[in-house]
């Protein structure tokens, strides 16, 4: 009798395991941890006119590069 009960409970555990559900809670929303652009990327492709990790120098380099789009400045 005990043996049958044990087998049935074991079977119930196996069968009912299929009824379980994975949690569907959204775990990651919004901004994921991401590196700031002034922290640099592949050094082989990185411009040399700013210092990696220095936000101010990156900002200056980007603004200088943006001015390359202005031919009125380039031709002066």
């Amino acid at each position: 009798m005990n043996r049958i009960a044990t087998m049935l409970s074991a079977l119930a555990i196996v069968v009912l395991a299929g009824c379980s559900q994975k949690p569907q809670t959204l775990t990651q929303t919004g901004a994921p941890p991401s590196q700031d652009p002034w922290m640099g990327a592949n050094p082989a492709f990185t411009e040399k006119d700013w210092k990696v990790g220095d936000k101010a120098s990156w900002q200056r380099a980007i603004d200088r590069r943006a001015q390359d789009q202005n031919e009125y400045v380039r031709m002066r």
Partner: peptide, 11 residues
């Protein structure tokens, strides 16, 4: 941007 460059489309 992390390479100190602007988007390629504009450049």
């Amino acid at each position: 941007l992390a390479e100190g460059k602007l988007p390629i489309c504009a450049e």
